[in-house]
């Protein structure tokens, strides 16, 4: 039996909570069982179980690393358990944080996707061949016993789920019990995707944010596969185009980078981040004046309270500094660097 103790995000409104509970306790009391929308199995009518899912028994308190390695290995990443433990296990709190878990998934070049809070979301992922890592609270809310396990099977006829859980290779739990323990983590459930793979019912923003995490940690190839997959599903998504452009740029593939930034700017000429980056891509490909025209345009169009204004100005300074040392001097460049208004 295990005790994972993820630190819950600190709330600055504890006192408010108390006040609210007093006022609204009666209203909320009716919400203690999971609503039907959460319970629904979706289109599933038959038992389904991913029996090939490896079983990695946990050691003391280490249900986080064991469950994580289970879902990682299904996605083709098979690091040694020790290494995973080192990355996610926090000895002080005898558990793992969700944020460390998603960061670790990225470190192995996979996409951590947090699924919707429903039984049907788990069902769809299992039908797509992906077991779902879940956070449960096996205690009660005021005496929590946090536990990570992996849902590998669902039996809608018997109202049961099958879990790889702790030292149990195949724990059968009634759906009601499972939902009660899962609800206490706000239904936190994670699937691990290979780059290029989309979740069963992807929510664009959440999926792209997960992919952007790969880009932010320098995994540009993996990120690009993720953005490409997004573009096959949502061809006009600005974020997906932006991501594909930026990942291409970081890989030194300037032509596709310019192509994707251009696609954004055709429909959204005021997309200043895209134009800022476009300036860099043009500069790197030797179109110095075009680059300066674009960065000047960014600064002219920016509102003074734009949180990224400082960055745009830094971009212009950098590009102007760089163009000034190019030999032979770039014709007309001077004008864009001295007249731009601040």
């Amino acid at each position: 039996m295990s005790h994972a103790g993820p630190r819950r995000p600190a709330h600055s409104h504890i006192r408010w909570r108390t006040v609210f509970t007093v006022f609204a306790g009666t209203v909320l009391a009716a919400c203690s069982t999971s609503p039907d929308t959460v319970r629904d199995y979706g289109a599933l009518t038959q038992t389904i179980e991913l029996s090939d899912t490896p079983f990695i028994p946990q050691e003391r308190y280490q249900c986080g690393p064991a469950a994580l390695l289970t879902v990682l290995s299904v996605a083709g990443a098979t690091p040694p358990l020790d290494e995973v433990v080192e990355r996610v296990y926090l000895p002080g709190s005898r558990g793992s944080l969700q944020a460390e878990i998603t960061a670790t998934v990225r470190a192995y070049g996979r996409i951590p996707y947090v699924i919707d809070a429903s039984m049907s979301a788990i069902t769809s992922e299992i039908q797509a061949g992906r077991p779902v890592m879940v956070l449960q609270n096996l205690g009660v809310s005021w005496l929590p016993r946090w536990h990570y396990s992996v849902v590998v099977g669902i039996n809608p006829l018997a109202d049961q789920v099958v879990l790889r859980s702790g030292t149990d290779a195949r724990r059968k739990t009634s759906t009601n019990t499972f939902l009660r323990t899962w609800s206490r983590s706000d239904y936190w459930g994670l699937v691990v995707l290979r780059p290029g793979e989309l979740p069963a019912n992807p929510e664009p923003q959440r999926y792209l944010q997960a992919v952007a995490g790969l880009e932010a940690t320098g995994r540009y190839h993996d990120a690009l596969s993720g953005y490409d997959a997004a573009l096959t599903r949502w061809p006009d998504s600005t974020i997906a185009l932006y991501g594909a452009a930026t990942a291409n740029y970081q890989l030194g593939q300037l032509a596709p980078a310019i192509h994707y930034y251009q696609r954004i700017l055709v429909t959204e000429p005021d997309h200043l981040s895209a134009r800022n980056n476009m300036a860099y891509a043009l500069f790197e490909s030797g179109h110095y004046v075009d680059a300066l025209v674009n960065i000047q345009e960014v600064i002219l169009r920016a509102h003074e309270d734009d949180p990224l204004l400082g960055q745009y100005l830094a971009s212009r300074d950098e590009l102007c500094a760089r163009v000034s040392i190019i030999d032979p001097p770039v014709d007309k460049a001077e004008g864009y660097c001295t007249t731009a208004g601040e």
Binding site: A212, T246, Q250, P307, R322
Partner: peptide, 20 residues
């Protein structure tokens, strides 16, 4: 160091849009 262009990453774009 000078030439390493700092483009605005996708994560930063998403979080600034979400904030707005």
């Amino acid at each position: 160091q000078v030439s390493h262009a700092e483009v605005i990453g996708t994560e930063q774009l998403i979080s600034s849009e979400a904030r707005e």
